[in-house]
């Protein structure tokens, strides 16, 4: 029976059913293909997000124990040698066959005299000492976002490293891998420098003492910021939080904090020699928190003025009471 005004009831044939099915399948496939084509597999930082791994880097030498030496003087290379000797000698930390990474601060393409970056004299001497201790290779790296090649060259770090037999690794987008820091709130599925760490057995951080407009100070822990990729500037919204997580991220073999000249004003870039103050100090230690607590005093601050240091100390990432490590004080005239 048909209702009034209608024709025979349409019936779908098998052929029609298959055609409709094919059309529906094609529509689904096209939609899926479009979605796959538009999907950004490499969001802003251009890093591989295929697997977010644990990015922690522990290169500490536990047998060496916590040690700190504070050298005074003007000659960076001489201070470094004396401070290293005071913590047991470079051989205590670098063994024959080690592959060493020097994480420098090469964030800005500015001349070394401005104190915004790691001084090339320190890079050269440290690379030479590592080589002399039997290191198989020494790599110098950092991740300055803007014009990395210029940063390494204009700071003098690149030339100094190469002259001392070290290689300079300039990160590229593929050098990072997504990592999620266990217990971290900010470093989650975030690009962390990975490529140059392949085969690395020891890590030494080398940073200058600088005031920092936002963080209060930029020293050895803030220096690990250069291991992060992506649009990391947003971390400035929680600068103390990210520095604490950097302390969680990296356990170095040693850190060298250069307070020969400290940037007292207009940090972290500075720009004028007038921003610097001769503080004539170089710190070598296994504990970055202790290094920064000591470095803060060169800026006329206490670790209590730097919330990230207080928090790092509370988390047991090091000690803010650097005096408790019984620093070996190495005066200039000792050389």
């Amino acid at each position: 029976m048909n209702p009034p005004g209608t024709g025979p009831e349409p019936v779908a044939t098998r052929r029609e059913f298959f055609l409709r099915g094919l059309r529906a399948g094609a529509a689904v496939a096209a939609t899926g293909g479009l979605a796959a084509w538009l999907w950004n597999r490499h969001p802003p930082g251009d890093f591989g997000r295929a697997q977010a791994s644990d990015p922690r880097k522990d290169f500490s030498v536990r047998s060496a124990g916590p040690r700190i030496a504070i050298a005074t003087g003007r000659d960076r290379a001489a201070m470094l040698r004396r401070a290293l000797a005071a913590v047991g000698g470079i051989e205590r930390f670098i063994a024959r066959g080690d592959r060493v990474m020097l994480k420098v601060n090469a964030a800005f393409a500015t001349p070394a005299i401005l104190g915004a970056t790691t001084h090339p004299d320190l890079v050269a001497e440290l690379a030479r000492l590592c080589r002399a201790a039997g290191a198989e290779s020494v790599i110098v790296t950092d991740n300055p976002i803007n014009a990395p090649e210029s940063c390494f060259e204009l700071t003098g770090i690149g030339a100094a490293a190469r002259a001392a037999g070290a290689d300079v690794f300039v990160p590229r987008p593929g050098s990072f891998r997504a990592g999620t820091l266990p217990g971290g709130r900010l470093i989650r599925d975030w690009p962390v420098l990975e490529e140059p760490f392949a085969g690395i057995t020891k890590l030494i951080g080398v940073a200058p003492v600088k005031g920092h407009q936002r963080a209060g100070a930029s020293m050895t822990i803030k220096n690990w910021y250069g291991l992060l990729g992506g649009r990391r500037n947003q971390f400035h919204q929680d600068i103390d939080g990210i520095i604490v997580e950097l302390a969680m991220l990296v356990r170095p073999t040693l850190v060298v904090l250069d307070g020969t000249d400290s940037m007292m004003t207009n940090g972290p870039t500075g720009g004028s020699l007038a921003d610097l103050k001769a503080t004539n100090t170089l710190i070598v230690t296994t504990d970055p928190v202790a290094a920064d607590a000591c470095g803060a005093t060169l800026l006329g601050k206490s670790f209590r003025d730097l919330p990230y240091l207080v928090r790092a100390g509370e988390l047991g990432l090091g000690t803010t009471d650097f005096e408790s490590l019984h620093p070996a004080r190495v005066p200039a005239q000792a050389s």
Partner: peptide
């Protein structure tokens, strides 16, 4: 999940 990279890409 907080993904700052994506947030900043828009910013």
């Amino acid at each position: 999940r907080f993904d700052p990279a994506v947030v900043m890409s828009a910013a």
